[in-house]
Structure formats: C-alpha cells, structure tokens
Design a protein around this nucleic acid. Structure first.
Length: 498
RNA sequence: GGUCCCAUCGUCUAGCGGUCUAGGACGCCGGCCUCUCACGCCGGAAACAGGGGUUCGAGUCCCCUUGGGACCGCCA
C-alpha cells in the first residue's frame, strides 16, 4: 500500500526524554493510530560527542512508560552514514552540490568581518564556481573539503504548505549554500535526516516549530534527489513561564518524563495533559480515553502559538503544572479501581508495603480501601504517604494534626482508651455500630461529637483530614483501631510534636 | 542584525464577519454538603496587546506599532 501513513519520532539521544519531545512523539503516534499508519522510532545518534547509551535507554524507557508503542525501529541514523555520503555524491554528480575548500578559519574570519560591518553573513560561494581543473588540483594537494548544496541562483522561491502554519515561502537568495558533508567526510543533519525520511518512506513530518526554518533547505534536498515530498506539520514549542524554550539545563528534572514517573503520575494522565498543550479537540472535552483521543485527534487542531508549561519553581502547593496535577488526580479517582490497584501495587512493592494477600483473601478489602481514600489524592505517592496508616502500623503523625485535634484536648488521653474498651466489645464492627457507640460516648461525656471524631481520626490515621470517620474505622478494622486508641496517651509524651 | 513565525482570562484554549454583554478547563475566591479534608454541585472575579483601515457590521480580514519566539554552525 503506497498511500500508507508513515510518521516518525526522531530524537537525538543527548539527554533524557523531556516533555517537549514526548509531546512530539504523542502527536506522531496519535496521527499514525488515527490513520492506521506506522509510527517509526529513529534515533538520530550521529553526534557521537553528545550521544550516549543512557540517553537511548532513557528515551526508550520513557516512550514505553507512556505507552507510545512504535511499529518499526528503533532505527539508528548512525547505521546509514554510508547511504548519506552516497546521496551527497549523487548530488555532486547531478550538479546540485559542490566541494568547498574554504577552511573553518577563513569562514570564521569572514563571519567575524560581516558581524563587524553589521551585515548578515552568508557563504560567499567562493568555491561554487571552481573549474574542474582547480578542484582536481586542490584535491591532489590533499586539501580537505566539505560539500555544499548548490542553492538555485534564479529569482525564485521555494514554498510548501505547512498543515499548521499554512503556506511558507522562502526566497532562494535568502538561503545560503549550506554544508551537507563535513570536511572529515561525515554527513550533516540536514542531509541525513532527509535521506532517512526518504528511505523510511515518511509521509508526514510532524515536528517542533524549530524545524520550520530549515524545512526549505530540506525541501531543496528532496527535490534534487527526486524524492516525493512529505506533508509537513510544525507544532508550536513549549516554553517556560519566562517564555524560554524548556530544557534540561535550565529546568532540571521537572521537564523530564522520568520525573513524572517518579512522582506518582499515571502515564496516560501525562499523555492527556501533554496532548492538550497546544492542541484542542472538536469540542470542549478535555479528558480523553485512548479510543476517544484517536477519534478526536487531527493535525488541524494544533494551534499556532507557543504554549507555556505553567510550572513555578518553589511553589509549595504545585510541584508541576497545576493542570497536569489536576488531570492526574482526575484519573486517580475515576479510573476503574482495579487499574488503580495495579499502579498502587508497584508503589507498595517499592516501599515494602505490599502484602500478597491484597491479591488474595484481602483483595476485596484492598480495593474498597483504595476506593475510599483516593478522592483526595493527587498522585500515586499519596497512597504510600498520606494513606500509610491503612496499610501499616508504622505511620507518621502530622504534627499540626496532633496539636490541633489531640493536645488541645488533654482529656482525650483518658477518653480514647476508655472508648476503645467499648469498641472492643462490639460483635459487629460496622458503620452503624461504631457511630452509635461513639456518639453515645460523646453525649455521655457531654462534649461535641466532633472533638471525639477528629481526635480519633488523628490517632488512627495520623492526620486531621480524610474520609468519614466511621468508614475509616471499618477500613482499618477493630483490632488495629482499638490498639491505636489505647496508645493515645503516648502522643502526649512525644514532646517534639508540641 | 538578517529571514521567518506567533499574539483571546494568571495558564491551556474555543472563536474560522453578525448567534461575543467573548465560551470551556486548570488555578483563585465565595456558597451548599459536612465529624475534618477532598469529591460533587452552585455562584464569582479574570482576556480580545495598541493604533489605523476594509465593511452596514471585526476578537474574527488587511496594514503599522509593540511584545514574544524560532532559525541564521563543517549541532541535531
């Protein structure tokens, strides 16, 4: 099938997968899914100075974690260097390229001079018109040369229709004779990328807007090589609050996909957030299932303005873009509980909180408990931190909660153990029974039920906030509740909490 | 500096000449619910960068200004 859609994600492995790259991958992946096409992963590892094995692994791990599966690859650009060189050779033979013997020093000097005279620098084509004899002579002398593309000198333009930016035109005279092969014989990105896309039969190039400016040059290569030109779709960039392009160097871990994995994000929630950064569906829908997103996705929904990743370093409440957190929280409380359970299991295993019975005789209890506590959580980490008391007898006490709900009422040291005795006598530890006992107890002591209730919550969960108390008690269970309530006086002894 | 791109609430965005006293989402504020905190529900504050045109009519089309971004490497 010659009209099959083929797209690719072609990262250079010079660092971890960051959210900008992930977004590009997501758009390509969705486009392929939408059109029953192929999504190809190609690692552009020809910059040996900066490419690392770790980066390659990081990119693959990141894509895998996000669930972005590829149909072909990973291919490696470095495996095709010979092919790129041959393409350059062919361009020379066809008269579309020439050998340039200018040295880097000469060019730097000219560049410097141009800068001094405040005039734009463009290669002056010194070597474009060398005679075959001159070339042979220089080659015989062993002078190194790079290969430059011969940009047409006529008064024309090269133009293309970008799916998101519309018609883009560039005058030939504004394009310099760019280098396609270095003097050490190695091909440059502009060439390699085009040759690879031609070989991989890429039909749609979906990439960042930073590629927009060199698309005309690549178009020239496509044409010179007689290749079919793919459809181009450039997507706006993701900027920080100061409108700087996001990068590892300036933003650190918060822009890496790995960061979200380590901070309790559900992969699909991140995908959902990222896809919304610069894209809008046909209606006001913002939360999408995979099927819905594939159905709704189109290149036409991509906006033209750069979008800002709304993350404020040092914000105590939001460690990343609030909307990302909000979408994650949404999935946390709306996904089928079984799915949440499998994510929580991973977290528990890491923390040593996992109990195999959660998949056996305690399965029902486990799911019900997760369902009880999940509505107020934002990340998977909250299950092991805020929710620890439900799964372990070793749980932290929030000092503020202890101060407010326990220490303020010294009588609790006496009351709660007394209440524990009453609860212990219950045959059926149910919502109704526990509520009855506790409310009666409050009445008997002539205090507001709220004081007792909040006190108990703090003692048995370590926190001042959480689900309705009686649900909490039933979830934690009679034995553990009684034991914890009896230990209330010990909270008064921990001076460091006061 | 040269070439190109962009411009609606704090942020992500809807809007493709009249239905815009500009809609949704996140965040923020207030209320309801209530044993707390969330969830949920209800309500609120919050934007068409500025100036010229075109038109009966402009957020929507054109121009200029301003602001922002990208590219300008023998990096990818």
């Amino acid at each position: 099938m010659s009209d099959e859609v083929r797209v690719r994600f072609a990262p250079s492995p010079t660092g971890y997968l960051h959210i900008g790259g992930a977004r590009t991958a997501i758009y390509n992946w969705l486009f392929a899914k939408k059109h029953n096409g192929k999504f190809i992963l190609r690692i552009e590892d020809t910059d040996k100075e900066r490419s690392t094995e770790d980066s390659i692994k990081g990119i693959i791990d990141g894509l895998t974690w996000l669930g972005l599966d590829w149909d072909e690859g990973p291919y490696f650009q470095s495996a095709h260097i010979e092919e790129h060189k041959q393409a350059a050779q062919k361009l020379i033979e066809l008269g579309w390229a020439y050998k340039c013997f200018c040295t880097k020093e000469e060019l730097d000097a000219k560049r410097e001079q141009a800068k001094k005279e405040k005039r734009p620098f463009k290669y002056d084509k010194t070597c474009r018109n060398l005679t075959p004899e001159e070339i042979a002579e220089k080659e015989k002398a062993g002078l190194p040369y790079c290969i430059r593309f011969k940009v047409p000198e006529e008064d024309g333009v090269i133009s293309f229709d970008d799916v998101v930016y519309g018609k883009i035109e560039r005058r030939f005279k504004d394009i310099e004779d760019f280098v396609i092969v270095r003097s050490d014989g190695s091909p440059l990105y502009l060439l390699s990328n085009a040759v690879d896309d031609i070989r991989d039969k890429i039909t749609h190039v979906i990439r960042g807007q930073d590629g927009l400016a060199n698309t005309p040059k690549q178009l020239l290569i496509y044409k010179a090589l007689g290749a079919k030109i793919p459809v181009f779709a450039h997507m706006p960039l993701t900027l920080d609050l100061k409108k700087r392009k996001i990068s590892k160097r300036t933003h650190g871990e918060v822009v890496s996909v790995q960061f979200y994995r380590e901070h309790g994000f559900i992969p699909w929630a991140l995908v959902n957030f990222l896809v919304l950064l610069g894209w809008h569906g046909p209606d006001d829908k913002e939360i999408y299932s995979l099927e819905e997103l594939i159905e709704a996705f189109s290149l036409e929904g991509i906006g033209r303005a750069n979008s800002i990743f709304n993350y404020r370093p040092g914000d105590p409440k939001f460690f990343t873009d609030p909307k990302a957190l909000s979408i994650n929280a949404h999935y946390l409380r709306n996904l089928p509980i079984e799915e949440i359970a499998s994510y929580v299991k991973q977290e528990f295993l890491r923390e040593g909180l996992w109990n195999p019975a959660y998949e056996g005789e305690k399965r029902k209890w486990f799911l019900e408990t997760l369902d009880l506590i999940r509505t107020r959580y934002h990340t998977l980490k909250d299950f092991v931190n805020l929710g620890r008391a439900y799964f372990s007898d070793e749980y932290p006490f929030d000092p503020k909660a202890v101060k407010k709900n326990i220490l303020k009422h010294p009588e609790l040291a006496k009351w709660l153990p007394e209440l524990a005795e009453k609860l212990e006598e219950l045959e059926q530890f149910t919502l109704e029974n526990t509520e009855e006992v506790i409310r009666n107890f409050a009445e008997e002591k002539q205090i507001k039920a709220g004081i007792i209730i909040n006190g108990i919550r703090t003692v048995v969960t370590g926190q001042s906030v959480g689900p309705g108390l009686f649900d909490v008690l039933v979830a934690i269970g009679k034995d553990r509740v009684v034991k914890r309530l009896k230990a209330t006086p010990s909270l008064f002894e921990q001076k460091d909490l006061q």
